[in-house]
Computed example of a mutant assay.
Amino acid sequence: MSGAPLKLVLFDCDGTLVDGQHMIVAAMSAAHRVRGLAVPPRDAILSVVGLSLPETFAVLSQGDPAYPVEALVEGYKTAFHQLRDAHPMEPMYAGTRTAVAALRAEAQTLLGIVTGKSRRGVARVLEAHAMEGWFSTIQTAEDAPSKPDPAMVRQAMAEVGGVPEATVVIGDTTYDMEMAKAAGAFAIGVGWGYHPPDKLVAAGADELVEDARRLPDAVRALLARHAARRTAREVGRCAT
């Protein structure tokens, strides 16, 4: 085994691996209607995908203390489970499964998931897409504070022995980018999810990928570039 650190690649789920926007919007709408509340605009709903459910509704409340966050969380869960039982599983984005498989096959590379979904939800996605056992660490909304808190990334690294300088977070939201940077990891933003690419760059994305087939190359190039810079700095220090 070489002295190079283990590479850890952490994927967000909704908006990055699978497209769950239709069920998310439908469940969110149902939760509000049951409580007799106005349904937020679609763009507003998609803008908070990735947060934990309590944080999602706290953001949507816009500071209104009367907003029934707890009741909406339960209403969303009920509606989402009903929809999932009645409809097919969320589809994967084009090329994402192939990209994940390619990264999984690389030596000294481990994969993980960091998501605002529940652990049960992640398990169902992986089962539906025949990806059970592909991810060495799975961190969910049940395991840590909501994104952009860095706890999920830090817990993932601790679980598998990863280090920030060899860890990459791949996601579609500013929350993913901010979470990665707060944990000292690298961030790759994807252009097919729920937040605009320019927002991902502004939030700290080290790279932006528009085609999922490019993800393995982007991860390799990003880590190699920074490894080379570290080596150059170390050589410079030794020479002084």
Results as ranks from 00 to 15, higher is better:
residue 5 P to K: 06
residue 6 L to C: 11
residue 6 L to V: 12
residue 7 K to N: 14
residue 8 L to W: 00
residue 11 F to R: 10
residue 12 D to R: 03
residue 14 D to E: 07
residue 14 D to R: 01
residue 14 D to C: 04
residue 15 G to T: 00
residue 16 T to F: 03
residue 17 L to V: 08
residue 18 V to R: 00
residue 21 Q to I: 06
residue 25 V to T: 11
residue 26 A to T: 07
residue 29 S to C: 05
residue 29 S to F: 02
residue 31 A to I: 07
residue 33 R to W: 06
residue 34 V to I: 14
residue 36 G to E: 12
residue 39 V to D: 02
residue 44 A to W: 09
residue 45 I to M: 13
residue 51 L to W: 03
residue 52 S to H: 05
residue 53 L to P: 02
residue 60 L to N: 06
residue 60 L to K: 05
residue 61 S to R: 08
residue 61 S to E: 11
residue 65 P to R: 04
residue 67 Y to C: 10
residue 70 E to K: 06
residue 72 L to H: 09
residue 73 V to T: 10
residue 74 E to V: 11
residue 75 G to W: 01
residue 78 T to V: 08
residue 78 T to Q: 06
residue 83 L to H: 03
residue 89 M to Q: 12
residue 90 E to G: 01
residue 91 P to L: 05
residue 93 Y to C: 00
residue 95 G to M: 05
residue 95 G to Q: 09
residue 102 A to E: 11
residue 111 L to W: 02
residue 111 L to N: 03
residue 115 T to C: 04
residue 119 R to K: 09
residue 121 G to I: 00
residue 122 V to I: 10
residue 128 A to K: 13
residue 134 W to A: 12
residue 135 F to P: 00
residue 138 I to E: 00
residue 140 T to N: 06
residue 143 D to C: 13
residue 144 A to D: 11
residue 146 S to V: 13
residue 149 D to E: 13
residue 152 M to N: 11
residue 155 Q to Y: 11
residue 158 A to V: 04
residue 160 V to M: 10
residue 161 G to D: 12
residue 165 E to M: 10
residue 172 D to W: 01
residue 174 T to H: 07
residue 176 D to L: 02
residue 176 D to I: 01
residue 180 A to I: 02
residue 187 A to G: 08
residue 188 I to L: 09
residue 188 I to C: 07
residue 188 I to K: 01
residue 193 G to K: 03
residue 198 D to I: 11
residue 203 A to E: 01
residue 206 D to Y: 10
residue 207 E to H: 10
residue 209 V to M: 14
residue 211 D to V: 14
residue 212 A to W: 02
residue 213 R to N: 15
residue 216 P to I: 09
residue 217 D to Y: 14
residue 217 D to Q: 14
residue 220 R to L: 14
residue 220 R to W: 14
residue 226 H to S: 13
residue 228 A to W: 15
residue 234 E to G: 13
residue 236 G to K: 03
